[in-house]
Write a protein that binds this DNA or RNA. Structure first.
Lengths: 244, 244
DNA sequence: CGTCGTTTTGACGGCAGTCAACGCGGGTGG
DNA sequence: CCACCCGCGTTGACTGCCGTCAAAACGACG
């Protein structure tokens, strides 16, 4: 145990940058305003110009865009330790919505808080920007999946990526993880229909690669799954940021 | 005519933020190291850890990722006035490649140059970060298209977006624009096969919506095309950034 | 026990990929 | 100057992945 409470966010940053005591205490202070939200009720709604961001400490969230015809595309999932709406604080645009997938706990961070923290410890600023850049790399990888991977490999890749992310904040192990997503979430994220998601999951399960059931993902044959998905985690555990 | 040479980059930023003389001259200085590149020869290659970025002043570039099986996905196109590899300067990761689609001219910008410019004029920093955020919004919109739009609407949307971008830097008008892309580029960007791109283009042309031919895009019925593509330019011409 | 959300499965159809062939224009070398 | 080649565009036939529609099973919850 540490003297300070370790949030998933701190844990994630610490995995890539050695943080000093000062920096840790600034991080602490960012976590002051704790808030809770209920599953299903959007935090930020598309088009809204919100000046607040959140650091997610518990639960899952997804960010998505709705189209005129009612279909939706999930852009990314946020898990404990992830920043939420960082861009929309710094630049006042929130072009998508955030929906809690479970009840969540998050620390509210205003633009002012953030800029103050940045001013105090530039290295922390770099670390946070690095995390943002990692998120962007994930969006790009997601895009590649939608454009160029067949449904089954796309699903496999997605489940592996999620596992790697959860591992980093300590809520997964190599054998699998708890996952609150419904098959509709998977469908909206992977650009498939819910029916086809089900077929794909069955296929992966029957092939002994991975099992998604009862809110739990189990890797039945990790190596073969990685091979099947052509999963290359290079874009995730990149070396830490240049420390200016 | 202005006293200074107006680069497309300057022009783009100026469309959203009123720039002072000082800021304009700092921008000028960023354009000092002019370089040329030949079509087809990658500027930066996937995995390479490059510390240089470029401001594109002439020609077109695409950024893409190649997969193990040889298929490629184009993530974005860069046109004059766009930044290229901004993230990879600030954080030393270039997770994709850049290929010139035409011969190009670009100004080389080192991390040091950029940081110096930022220190001199913080408003400029904000403006550039805003431009980066706009690029990211485009990637997200691209992702939505791949996940949730049928091929023809995806194509229509893409051609409209490109038109809007080109309009901003003054190399398009409402009726159309010159476009050096091949149908293979379109295929790799839109997640389609080249054959199907051809079919879709024919369909759009025969429906009197838009014509892509001989390196030129012509909007045959702009309003109907916008409706067909469900194109909502909100994510493009957002209000300028918060000026810190 | 009924309802609702989620998962599961089957039948059918369509959008888009693959394969294959051909036209066309520009560049290159004989 | 012509023959050839190569990249790009175009079209048709066939196939298959995946969406839609429909119905049923299952569990949680009131």
């Amino acid at each position: 145990m540490h003297a300070y409470e370790e949030s998933p966010f701190t844990r994630k940053l610490a995995a890539f940058v050695a943080l000093s005591k000062d920096e840790l205490s600034v991080l602490e202070r960012l976590h002051q305003r704790r808030r809770s939200f209920r599953v299903g009720i959007d935090l930020v709604h598309q088009g809204q110009s919100e000046q607040t961001a959140y650091i997610l400490s518990q639960g899952w969230v997804c960010s998505y865009k709705i189209q005129r015809d009612g279909t939706r595309q999930i852009v990314d999932f946020q898990i404990p330790g992830d920043f939420l709406g960082l861009r929309s604080v710094l630049l006042r645009t929130s072009d998508h919505s955030f929906e809690p997938i479970t009840d969540i706990q998050a620390a509210e961070v205003s633009a002012a808080d953030l800029l103050e923290a940045f001013a105090q410890t530039p290295r922390l600023a770099t670390a946070i920007l690095w995390a943002a850049s990692r998120d962007e790399a994930m969006v790009v990888e997601h895009l590649v999946g939608l454009g160029r991977r067949p449904a089954d490999a796309r699903m496999a890749h997605f489940l592996l990526e999620l596992g790697a992310r959860l591992l980093l904040v300590g809520i997964a192990d190599k054998s699998g993880y708890a996952c609150p997503l419904t098959q509709y979430h998977l469908a909206d994220a992977l650009g498939l229909s819910a029916v086809h998601v089900n077929r794909v999951l069955r296929h992966l399960r029957e092939d002994g690669l991975v099992t998604f059931r009862n809110g739990h993902v189990t890797f039945d044959d990790y190596d073969r799954l990685i091979d099947f998905a052509e999963f290359d985690p290079a874009y995730l555990d990149q070396a830490g940021p240049v420390l200016l």
